[in-house]
Design a protein around this nucleic acid. Structure first.
Lengths: 342, 342
DNA sequence: TGTTAGCACTCTTAATGCTTGACTGCTAAT
DNA sequence: ATTAGCAGTCAAGCATTAAGAGTGCTAACA
């Protein structure tokens, strides 16, 4: 059922005012502050209808109305007036992104910082590239007689400090040869493909077998080690500045979800509808999220291929206008940077 | 003035009991639970004397006694009965430290994890090596025509992903030559020395000047970028499990100090007495620390040279026995690992 | 001189009841 | 369809009370 224009307007007012003041919105406030031409009694009947439809709730019989999860979703997708960032904010974004961004990890870190600073909420990002990312080149760098550093250049990332053991008696020339062999074998393959690779080591190559296994192990170690750090977070403390988190249990719940990371990782990677901006709200559907908190995410892609997701987590009563504006701007910059690198 | 044996015993009891129960300790509890042969009235006069001496305080006239900062310090240095870790805990330590520890950063991360898991508090570590660490080898690895990866092997660390720009027209052979030149120049020098290095580029070497400057810049970037991440933290959420942090302001204060990092960095690097275990308590002297919280630190050294500091931050009412036991054990392991690497 | 019992005093904490004010929902009139 | 008015509900703040925990002091005792 489609809402009447007036209902939409009232709903928008409720959400806006509630985000602004954190106080349940009463019919009186609406009629006096926003709609002087309509009496509070009229508003009351509209509010009551909106409640019936599931967009509003009351904390108790004699309190004003508070938006429901549904209302926030509708607000972000339809009702909300899109905001533009100020010149100052845009300059800040540019300034941060100018810093050392040769490594994709740094691009993420910069993005996280910008998002959390400008929005005032905790920012999160998860890279979904790792599994699909392909190897461009592998290079061994011997620096002890029985150790080598494996340097792996991928399409998007640079994996480093994966040490492997090599046989002491192997000469530098032999190592070079092994390098070339493995390089040829691994090139243009994803990690997944490599892990499933079955190789016949014929006589002449049997010396490489140890190295081969060590490299695979290093890759696996990299995977399992990074699996939990794939989720990056910045501005954890931001949450404390919002009056929504006044009681200790709320803060605990929030920080537990954010610091444990795995729950968040689940939610961020689960369904990935092709929406530009995705809003998930704790309770009603997303029980893993802290109660009454929202996760607003966006995805970024390079050459049409989705690479990761980034976003903001905070109270449901969140400044969605700013958050969406920040996410969209940062998204554009990330995509242009990554496309450039290619 | 030296405390009488009985006063010491009572003080120890107060601290132990307070750590255990989080309830101000009364004369009655002491006499009934710990010293049945003495009446509560006697304890009362002893307590009152200890308060006079600055070891105990009262929250209000009719409350039990709570240890002061002085009391905690004395407790850790003299009074406390040292605890030994259980077989299970020791096994856990070993298990964690077996994981991928080729890189010093991972040694730290492992240590942080162990410390925070076993103690139940937030763990912190700061490396003081960076400034003094000497370069062992520098290697260029070209991978775009105008870019190279600078790989710097130091005595203890491996710096990586510092990209530098190189002149397009430079041949690989020339790059090799430049590599050798810079390697020779930087070898066995600390970063500080390198930054102050004045080099005369005579005619034949003038082509390296760009590279030289780029490398220095990369090092500097590394420095300034890492300056704030030099402080590593694990288990931030641990603080929430302790009943000392029941009101929101305490949590806020704590998290602000811990997440902003710079205050903590100051405190951890400031005075470094050669004590094995160092206790700093918020309020009274260390205003930068959150109120009523303690920072317990230890330092580790390799070949007699101090390299860094690690520790635990949590409520003053902290399980010092466990914390000290964990720190000492982890310290021994770190030192043996680092000594091995040499 | 050190120890103890007893008692008065202080202060916190929790429970209770009361008042005020902010809303709503309903109804009847416009 | 809108509005004004009114009764009913609930939260929040405030004062009062009672109970309980713990101390300090004093006087008596070994």
């Amino acid at each position: 059922m489609e809402l009447s224009e007036r209902k939409k307007k009232i709903l928008q007012i409720v959400v806006d005012d509630y985000i602004d003041t954190a106080v349940p919105v009463s019919s009186k406030v609406i009629s006096e502050k926003y709609m002087q031409n309509v009496s509070s009694a009229t508003i009351r009947s509209e509010l009551s209808a909106l409640e019936e439809l599931g967009y509003l709730t009351q904390l108790h019989t004699s309190s004003g109305r508070v938006p429901s999860a549904e209302a926030y979703k509708l607000y972000v997708s339809d009702l909300m007036v899109k905001e533009h960032l100020s010149k100052k904010e845009l300059d800040y974004i540019k300034e941060i992104f100018l810093q050392k961004a040769d490594n994709i990890e740094n691009v993420f870190k910069n993005a996280l910082k910008v998002i959390s600073e400008l929005s005032g909420y905790t920012s999160v990002a998860v890279s979904q590239s790792a599994v699909e990312d392909k190897i461009k080149e592998i290079r061994f760098f011997r620096f002890r007689e029985d150790k080598a550093l494996v340097l792996i250049v991928t399409e998007l990332k640079l994996l480093k400090d994966n040490y492997i053991e090599i046989p002491k008696e192997m000469t530098d020339a032999e190592l070079e040869e092994a390098n070339a062999f493995i390089n040829k074998l691994f090139k243009e393959k994803s990690f997944e493909e490599i892990c499933n690779l079955e190789v016949d080591f014929d006589e002449s190559f049997s010396g490489y077998k140890t190295i081969f296994i060590n490299v695979i192990d290093a890759l696996k170690a990299y995977f399992s080690a990074k699996e939990d750090s794939k989720l990056m977070i910045d501005g954890q403390d931001k949450i404390l500045r919002h009056k929504d988190f006044l009681d200790v249990d709320r803060i605990k719940e929030f920080l537990e979800v954010v610091t444990s990371k795995d729950k968040l990782l689940d939610i961020m990677t689960e369904d990935n509808r092709e929406l530009k901006i995705n809003v998930k709200i704790g309770s009603e559907g997303y029980e893993k999220l802290p109660k009454d908190s929202s996760l607003v995410t966006a995805s970024y892609s390079v050459h049409g291929k989705k690479i990761g997701t980034y976003g903001v987590i905070g109270p449901s009563r969140m400044d969605y206008q700013k958050v969406v504006a920040v996410l969209e701007n940062v998204g554009r910059i990330i995509e242009s940077i990554l496309a450039d690198k290619e």
